[in-house]
Design a binder for these strands. Structure first.
Length: 463
DNA sequence: GATTATGATTGTTT
DNA sequence: AAACAATCATAATC
């Protein structure tokens, strides 16, 4: 230690003396400036010679070897490393030990949540592995320069923009089944790119490490410094990682929002489709539960999906029932009120009749659902002005299934027409209607005589 | 712009 | 698994 320090000190002194000798005493010789120039020239010449020497491989190797084998080398190495550490590297030290980037963590979390990153599903891993292998095969051994880094970033960006374009082309026409496929696509691209990224990062890191190890034979580069360098490289590459993850997240979000939009966007069916569906519903009113085949047929006729047909019938059934129920409840309440009034008013309880008439007493007459339906929309109320008024009073609040013909041009009025036209049979059954065995099951629950009817009403108290 | 109609989704029941 | 019921979100209507 002492020896070295002294040695270095001496070297320094010698160098200083030299310089002083050469430049510190300018007043010697005839033309000092000329002499100085020449001396500078000499020095430069020496430096150039040294540079040339170092380029000579055989010689350099020889020198390196000599240096390496020098008995003082390890000690010198450690001292120089120490000095370097204290001066240059201390600045970098302060920047280390950063907490993990919160944004990156967020991205990671989201990717895992969306199933893009994390535990692999399906064959994505093998594809990514293949891609990685392919990339490694084609990758030359050279170091990844700054330009390559940028190129890779641009490449990743481009890939994601093309992906985004693909989604934009599809517009709102994203089908339910497409979503999974597209997500899988994103996942695959992500994993492929992530593999490439890791590959590139590792290659570069390895290269740098090798380089530094090699140089550590001639330069004071401690293993610690190499580690630090690796850390720096990783940090630099993290920008690519971030970009990749961000792009992926973006793609997923866009895909998702598009999908949800498409899901949420409600487009009315065509008039014709609605007509066909209503026809079926009304002609199977006693049992409006189309079989799978019937649904397919309707779907084909209406140019909609089977599940849309199912939705339609589900909505239709429940809303039909609901509105019948509502109207009936109103009527019942009105009847109760008027009855109470009549009871109180001993003399003139005319209205009670009207309400009672409206009371859709279908079950009392033993009719099935179709019969009740007829009562709702039929003409038999016109026998009394009171009852008509009652009907008018009640029906507009029953939202839709009115005989008013102002709105719902295709709904009930059609049915009424159909029924009127087939005066003999209340229900226009097709010959192939095999659902008769279950006739009435749908409407029975609406029968006031049926306890289930009151359940229905109670379940929907708000009118 | 408030209201109603209607297709779709979600959670529960049967 | 199909149906039901409640609800959402948007289209259509007043």
């Amino acid at each position: 230690m002492d020896d070295q320090q002294r040695m270095m000190h001496n070297q320094g002194q010698m160098a200083n003396t030299n310089v002083l000798n050469q430049y510190g005493i300018p007043q010697q010789g005839d033309d000092p400036s000329d002499q100085r120039k020449q001396e500078i020239g000499d020095i430069l010449q020496q430096i150039m010679t040294i540079t040339d020497q170092s380029l000579d491989e055989a010689q350099a190797r020889c020198r390196k070897h000599t240096l390496n084998c020098h008995r003082m080398k390890p000690a010198l190495f450690s001292v120089l490393c120490e000095i370097k550490e204290k001066t240059v590297l201390s600045i970098r030290n302060s920047q280390e030990e950063e907490p993990p980037d919160p944004q990156l963590m967020r991205l990671d979390n989201m990717l895992i949540a969306e199933g893009v990153a994390g535990p692999e599903k399906g064959g994505g891993s093998s594809a990514a592995a293949n891609a990685t292998a392919a990339a490694s095969g084609g990758q030359p051994d050279s170091a990844i320069e700054h330009s390559d880094y940028r190129a890779k970033l641009a490449q990743i960006r481009q890939i994601y923009h093309t992906e985004l374009d693909k989604y934009e082309q599809d517009g709102s026409e994203i089908k339910n089944s497409d979503y999974e496929a597209k997500l899988a696509q994103i996942r695959q691209v992500y994993q492929t790119e992530y593999g490439k990224y890791e590959q590139a990062c590792n290659e570069f890191t390895t290269h740098v490490v090798n380089l530094l190890r090699e140089q550590s034979r001639t330069r004071p580069i401690a293993p610690k410094e190499i580690e630090r360098m690796v850390g720096i490289i990783r940090k630099k590459f993290a920008a690519i990682e971030m970009q990749l993850k961000q792009s992926t997240c973006e793609a997923v979000m866009i895909l998702r929002s598009r999908f949800l939009d498409a899901r949420r966007k409600r487009r009315n069916f065509t008039k014709l489709a609605t007509q066909v569906l209503n026809d079926y519903f009304n002609s199977h009113l006693s049992n409006p539960y189309p079989s799978e085949e019937a649904k397919e047929e309707l779907a084909r006729k209406c140019q909609i999906t089977v599940s849309q047909v199912s939705n339609w019938f589900g909505n239709k059934r429940i809303r039909y029932k609901k509105n019948i129920g509502k109207a009936q409840e109103e009527a019942n309440m009105y009847a109760a009120k008027t009855a109470a009034a009549a009871a109180a008013n001993v003399g003139g309880g005319h209205d009670g009749q009207g309400a009672a008439g409206y009371n859709l007493g279908s079950s009392q007459s033993g009719m099935g659902g179709g019969g009740m339906y007829m009562n709702l929309n039929g003409d038999n109320y016109q026998s009394s002005d009171n009852s008509v008024n009652t009907l008018r009073h009640v029906m507009p609040q029953s939202a839709g299934y009115s005989n008013d013909s102002m709105h719902n041009s295709y709904d009930q009025p059609q049915v009424s027409q159909a029924h009127r036209s087939h005066a003999g049979s209340p229900i226009d059954r097709k010959p192939d209607d095999s659902s008769d065995s279950l006739q009435g099951t749908f409407m029975q629950s609406l029968d006031p005589a049926d306890p289930g009817y009151y359940d229905q009403i109670e379940k929907n108290p708000k009118v």
